[in-house]
């Protein structure tokens, strides 16, 4: 893999790739130190504290370790991927039935990771963070509430203001490429 290109990825995504490709425990510990306190904040916002929060954080981080082969930096930042796992686990705990999730779409041990796609998405991810940083405090508060799961779906339908169009196009390219590779695998 192109190390020079990878060193320009945001550090969390680079740690997750190190976990995925090298089972790197130090990188995993860094991911834990970065995300555990943030997931704790996220859980506290819906009233889950103490050992109830510990259980979810532990479960989420173990899944990060065990499922890292599914992480594709051309389609997600480390934060996006971990956000998804945290949301899914939290809802599984809240509801009696498992949260319905879409079929997974990935190739394990892909021979040619899409480094260019990963970098392109990473740049968009940086722009998104800057845009969030520029929001008015009241706008920012509403968007935080929405993504922390504190609004009803009627309230969510009124949310706008995040520049997500380019990110969607990038992810779409990543998916198209993956579909292509899946087709090649089937016809080999």
């Amino acid at each position: 893999m192109d190390n020079d290109a990878e060193s320009r990825l945001c550090e969390q995504t680079a740690w997750l790739i190190a976990v995925r490709d090298n089972r790197d425990r130090d990188a995993f510990a860094r991911l834990f130190e970065f995300y555990a306190p943030r997931i704790r904040t996220m859980l506290a916002r819906s009233g889950r504290f103490g050992t109830a929060a510990d259980d979810i954080i532990q479960d989420v981080m173990l899944r990060v370790w065990r499922k890292s082969a599914q992480f594709d930096p051309a389609r997600a930042s480390a934060s996006a991927w971990i956000y998804r796992i945290a949301r899914n686990r939290h809802i599984d705990v809240i509801r009696k039935d498992a949260r319905p999730v879409p079929e997974e779409l990935y190739i394990e041990n892909t021979a040619e990771p899409d480094a260019a796609g990963g970098l392109a998405l990473d740049q968009e991810s940086r722009r998104l963070r800057e845009a969030i940083g520029r929001l008015r405090p009241d706008q920012r508060a509403v968007i935080e509430q929405a993504y922390m799961g504190e609004l009803s779906h009627t309230e969510i339908s009124e949310i706008s203001g995040l520049p997500l169009g380019t990110i969607k196009s990038r992810i779409r390219l990543g998916l198209d490429k993956l579909r292509h590779e899946l087709k090649d695998l089937r016809t080999e």
């Binding site: 969390q12 995300y35 306190p37 943030r38 997931i39 704790r40 904040t41 996220m42 506290a44 389609r75 997600a76 930042s77 480390a78 934060s79 996006a80 991927w81 971990i82 956000y83 998804r84 945290a86 949301r87 879409p102 779409l105 998405l121 968009e124 991810s125 998104l128 963070r129 969030i132 940083g133 968007i143 935080e144 993504y147 922390m148 995040l162 997500l164 990110i167 969607k168 992810i171 779409r172 998916l175 198209d176 579909r179």
Partner: peptide, 26 residues
């Protein structure tokens, strides 16, 4: 549907960016 999958993953990118920017519970 990959079109809607891309839109879901886009929403998760926004969720991830918000998660990253949360004040950690120190």
């Amino acid at each position: 549907c990959d079109e809607c999958r891309a839109r879901l993953e886009t929403e998760e990118m926004a969720g991830g960016a918000i998660l990253e920017a949360l004040a950690p519970d120190t």
